[in-house]
Amino acid sequence: MLAKLAQEIVNITSEVIGHDVLVTDKDGMVLGSSDKPGNYCWGHSAKWKNH
């Protein structure tokens, strides 16, 4: 649920400001990214975990 909301916020924000947006949790886990829509919930190790 949180990742879905984060991705929605990222999509809207990116569209409004015209730049890529990245939302992470306190541990650095990516919850939303405008760089690769639909590919969220991955960590800094760059190992993609599609959910």
Rank of each mutant, 00 (worst) to 15 (best):
M1I: 03
M1Y: 03
M1C: 01
L2W: 02
L2S: 06
L2R: 08
A3T: 10
A3S: 06
A3Q: 09
K4P: 00
K4M: 12
K4L: 15
L5F: 04
L5H: 03
L5W: 02
A6L: 08
A6W: 00
Q7R: 01
E8L: 08
E8C: 06
I9W: 04
I9M: 04
I9L: 10
V10L: 00
N11F: 05
N11T: 12
N11C: 03
I12E: 14
I12A: 09
T13H: 00
T13F: 01
T13R: 03
T13E: 13
T13G: 05
T13Q: 01
S14H: 05
S14Q: 02
E15P: 00
E15T: 09
E15Y: 03
E15K: 15
V16S: 08
V16H: 01
I17M: 12
I17V: 15
G18Q: 10
G18Y: 08
G18R: 01
G18V: 09
H19E: 14
H19S: 06
H19C: 07
H19Q: 14
H19V: 10
H19Y: 15
D20I: 04
D20F: 06
V21N: 04
V21M: 02
V21I: 15
L22A: 07
L22E: 13
V23H: 05
T24Q: 13
D25V: 02
D25R: 05
K26F: 12
K26I: 12
K26N: 13
K26H: 14
D27F: 11
D27W: 11
D27H: 15
D27Q: 12
D27E: 14
G28N: 11
G28K: 07
G28A: 03
M29K: 15
M29E: 05
M29G: 05
V30C: 09
V30L: 09
V30M: 13
V30W: 02
V30E: 04
V30P: 04
L31C: 09
L31F: 01
G32Q: 04
G32V: 05
G32E: 02
S33K: 00
S33I: 08
S33W: 00
S33L: 07
S34K: 07
S34R: 04
S34D: 03
D35H: 13
D35T: 14
D35M: 14
P37D: 07
G38M: 11
N39D: 10
Y40A: 08
Y40T: 14
C41N: 14
C41P: 01
C41I: 11
W42L: 05
W42I: 07
W42C: 04
W42R: 06
W42G: 00
W42T: 14
W42M: 03
G43M: 04
G43A: 13
G43K: 12
G43I: 03
H44K: 14
H44L: 15
H44T: 08
S45D: 14
S45F: 11
S45Q: 07
A46V: 10
K47D: 14
K47Y: 07
W48S: 11
W48F: 09
W48V: 15
K49P: 02
K49W: 11
N50R: 11
N50H: 12
H51Q: 08
H51V: 10
H51Y: 13
H51M: 06
H51I: 07
